[in-house]
Amino acid sequence: MADMMTVRLKVNGVAHEGRCEPRKLLVDFIREDLGLTGTHVGCEHGICGACTIIVNGESARSCIMLAVQADGAELMTVEGLMQDGKLHPLQEAFREHHGLQCGFCTPGMLMTALDFLRTNPSPSDREIREGISAVLCRCTGYQGIVNAVRAAAATLRGGR
C-alpha cells in the first residue's frame, strides 16, 4: 500500500516500530501490530472507555486516536501496571473488592482510575463515581469498583 507510515513509540518502557495506514486506530495498532491484547476495544467511538490507556502520562481513549498520532509518544497499557511480578495496588484492590466480573471493562477502568487518582489522590465516593463514569461496566453494578478505587487510593497515599 502506497500510503503506509512509520510509527515509532514506547509502550510500557519498550520501544516499538511499526508501519500502518494513517486510518489505523491506535487501539488496533496496539492489539494487532504490537500483540498487546490487554487493552480492550468495545464501542469504537469513545463512549465505553474499555480502550483507555495512558498517552504521555494522561489517560486517553485509544479507539479515537490514530496510531500515526502516537508517533514519538510514550504509552502505558494495562500490561505495564504489574511490576516485578507484583500486582499494582489498583489491581490488588480490584481483586480484593470484586471490582470485576467478566473483566471486559477492567483494563480501561484501571487506566482511568490510575490517572484519576493522580489528579485527585483523596477522592470522596461521589468524586470516585464521577471519575469512573468515564468507563461503562455491564457486570458489577459499579459498587465493587468504587470500593476498590477507594481502597487503592488509601494504599497509594500510604506510598506503597
Binding site: 469513545g46 494522561e58 489517560s59 481513549r61 479515537i64 490517572d115 471519575g131 463514569s133 468515564a134
Partner: peptide
Amino acid sequence: VGHLPIRTR
C-alpha cells in the same frame, strides 16, 4: 465536558 480521559485530548 465528557470525562477526564476525553478532556486530556
